[in-house]
């Protein structure tokens, strides 16, 4: 049976992710390129991966993309498939890197910043792969360098935000309330 605490924690994180997802669309980005965004919702995905397990993170990601697009009116649009595939790709890579992180060998250890950057890059790659599948025009790959390059600063920024968030939760003693 699913514990009430787990259910409510997941619900709060999904709500947070949806709000960030929708809020992000309101921030004007000083870039003339459509498609470049901060990826604030990725913070919640990585938070779920750090605090819980990959199963919970995938659940939150799927709920966030489906409910978020339902609220913004893009359900089953191209935009929905793009954000869905991007988010799934990002979660897969970040889960993989986090699995490697606690390993004894120093070789594969990444900090949250690095994992966040990798997640942003995977998000953009997954999105472009889906766009290429849907649009079937090779011109879409002209986006690839720009999107990959943008993933470095945006991933770095979201990683920093997450690190500060975790520090705050830890110092204020709220981290234990979160853990299921």
């Amino acid at each position: 049976m699913v514990s009430t605490k787990r259910l409510t924690t997941i619900a709060v994180l999904v709500a947070l992710a949806i709000v960030l997802h929708l809020f992000e669309a309101l921030i004007p980005i000083p870039f003339p390129i459509p498609g470049v965004k901060l990826g604030l919702a990725n913070i919640v995905t990585l938070l779920a991966l750090v605090l819980f397990d990959s199963k919970t993170a995938f659940l939150i990601v799927i709920l966030r993309t489906v409910l978020g697009s339902l609220l913004s009116g893009t359900l089953l649009n191209i935009a929905f498939f793009l954000s869905f595939s991007g988010a799934i790709a990002a979660t897969c890579l970040m889960a993989l890197l986090l699995q490697l992180a606690p390993a004894a060998s120093f070789k594969f250890r990444f900090s949250l910043l690095g994992i966040s950057v990798a997640g942003a890059a995977a998000h953009n790659l997954g999105q472009l792969a889906m766009a290429a599948l849907l649009i079937k025009h090779t011109g879409i790959f002209y986006y690839l360098p720009i999107m990959l390059l943008s993933s470095v600063p945006t991933g770095f920024l979201t990683g920093l935000l997450l690190r500060e968030l975790l520090n705050y939760l830890q110092s204020s003693g709220q981290l234990d309330d979160f853990l299921i």
Partner: peptide, 9 residues
């Protein structure tokens, strides 16, 4: 930022 993160970037 660890060394591995810089390599990844």
């Amino acid at each position: 930022m660890k060394r591995n993160d810089i390599i990844l970037t």
